[in-house]
C-alpha cells in the first residue's frame, strides 16, 4: 500500500496512539460511576466476567480511528484486477525434439493440447496469438480476441523438425504485441536455444517493457532420443529460468501432459489478472465510520459508550 500524504498518516497515527493512551488513562481514573467492591481478585475469580468485551470495544474504536486516519492519508492499494484487454502470445517449440514420446502422445501434441485448453479458459476480451518456432519463428495466429479462431489455427502448427530458435520466437512476439496494455509471452519448449537471436537479450528487453515471459520446460528428466537421430532431447532449465527471471515472469517444469496442462492453467490465472493501485480513501473512511458507529451502538447496547 502506498499513501499520498505520509505526513497526515504519521500525525494521524500519533493521534490514534495518544487517544489509546489517554483512553486507558481516563478509563482508570476514579469516577463517581465506579462501583467499589471489597476484593476485585475475588470478584474476577467468582464471576469470571468477560473482560474481552470492553477490550474489544476499545480496540474497535482504535481501529476505526486508524481507518479514518488512513482514509485522509490518500491510501492506494495494489489489488488484482481482471484483465479484459490483455494480449498473450504462446510460443510453441516445433523443433525435432518435440516429437519425442516421453510425454504422451508426443511433446508437440501435449503442448498443442495444453495451449488449446489455455486459450479456451482465457477471459473474454483477452487477445491470444500463436507463434511456432524451430529453426525460425513464424506467426501461426496473430493476436485475436476470437478464441475459437486461434484454437482453429493450432492445427496449422508444423510438425516437429529443425533447430530451436527461442530468441527469434521471443523477438517476433515482442514485435507483434501492442505497445501498451497487459502483455504476456508464454514459451513452451523442450530444448536449448541453438540458433538465431540471444533469448536472454530479448527477455531483458521484454522485462524492461513490462512484458513478462512465462517459460514452461516440457520433458521427463531422463529425456528421450529425438526420433530418427541419436541426439538426446535435453532442457536447459537454467536458461529457461533465466529468461523468466529477466523478464519478470516465472518458470515451470512439466514432465507429462497433466503437468503441462496444470502449468498453463496456472499461467492462465496469473495472466488473466493484473495488479493495479486503487484509491482506497473512500473505503477506509467509510470502514472507519462504520467501525465507529458499530462500536458506539455496541457500547450503548451493553451499557456504556465513551
Amino acid at each position: 500500500m502506498i499513501v499520498d500524504h505520509p505526513v497526515r498518516l504519521l500525525l494521524g497515527l500519533v493521534g490514534v496512539v495518544l487517544f489509546a493512551l489517554l483512553y486507558d488513562r481516563l478509563a482508570r481514573r476514579m469516577t463517581a460511576r465506579d462501583l467499589a467492591y471489597s476484593n476485585v481478585p475475588f470478584f474476577l475469580e467468582a464471576a469470571q466476567p468477560r473482560q474481552w468485551i470492553p477490550r474489544a470495544l476499545q480496540a474497535l474504536w482504535i481501529l476505526a480511528l486508524g481507518a479514518l486516519v488512513l482514509g485522509i492519508s490518500g491510501p492506494h492499494l495494489t489489488v488484482p484486477v481482471p484483465v479484459r484487454d490483455g494480449s498473450v502470445f504462446i510460443c510453441i517449440d516445433t523443433s525435432g525434439s518435440m516429437s519425442s514420446t516421453d510425454v504422451f502422445p508426443t511433446r508437440a501434441q501435449a503442448a498443442k493440447s495444453a495451449a488449446r485448453a489455455f486459450i479456451e479458459e482465457s477471459p473474454q476480451g483477452t487477445k491470444t496469438g500463436i507463434i511456432s518456432f524451430a529453426g525460425a519463428a513464424s506467426v501461426i495466429a496473430p493476436l485475436n480476441s476470437d478464441h475459437q479462431a486461434v484454437i482453429g489455427a493450432l492445427d496449422q502448427i508444423p510438425l516437429p523438425d529443425g533447430a530451436t530458435a527461442i530468441g527469434d520466437a521471443l523477438k517476433l512476439a515482442a514485435q507483434m504485441l501492442p505497445a501498451t496494455g497487459h502483455r504476456v509471452v508464454i514459451l513452451i519448449t523442450d530444448g536449448v536455444n541453438n540458433t538465431g537471436n540471444d533469448p536472454m537479450e530479448i527477455a531483458q528487453w521484454l522485462g524492461a517493457h513490462h512484458i513478462p515471459v512465462y517459460t514452461v520446460g516440457i520433458g521427463t528428466p531422463n529425456g528421450g532420443l529425438i526420433p530418427g537421430t541419436n541426439e538426446e532431447a535435453t532442457i536447459d532449465e537454467n536458461a529457461l529460468r533465466g529468461y523468466a527471471d529477466a523478464s519478470g515472469g516465472a518458470y515451470a517444469r512439466a514432465e507429462n501432459a497433466t503437468q503441462l496442462h496444470d502449468a498453463l492453467a496456472r499461467l492462465g490465472r496469473i495472466t488473466s489478472v493484473t495488479h493495479k493501485p486503487v484509491d482506497a480513501s473512500l473505503g477506509f473512511a467509510v470502514g472507519g465510520a462504520v467501525g465507529m458507529l458499530l462500536a458506539f451502538l455496541t457500547g450503548f447496547s451493553v451499557g456504556r459508550y465513551p
Binding site: 460511576r33 471489597s38 470492553p54
Partner: peptide, 23 residues
C-alpha cells in the same frame, strides 16, 4: 451490576468487564 461495568477494589485493583446473567 449489568452490562459493561467499571469495578474498583477497596484495597486496590480495577477492572472493566461485561457482566451478564451467567456472571
Amino acid at each position: 451490576l449489568g452490562g459493561l461495568v467499571r469495578l474498583r477494589g477497596a484495597e486496590g485493583g480495577y477492572t472493566r468487564a461485561y457482566v451478564g446473567p451467567r456472571e
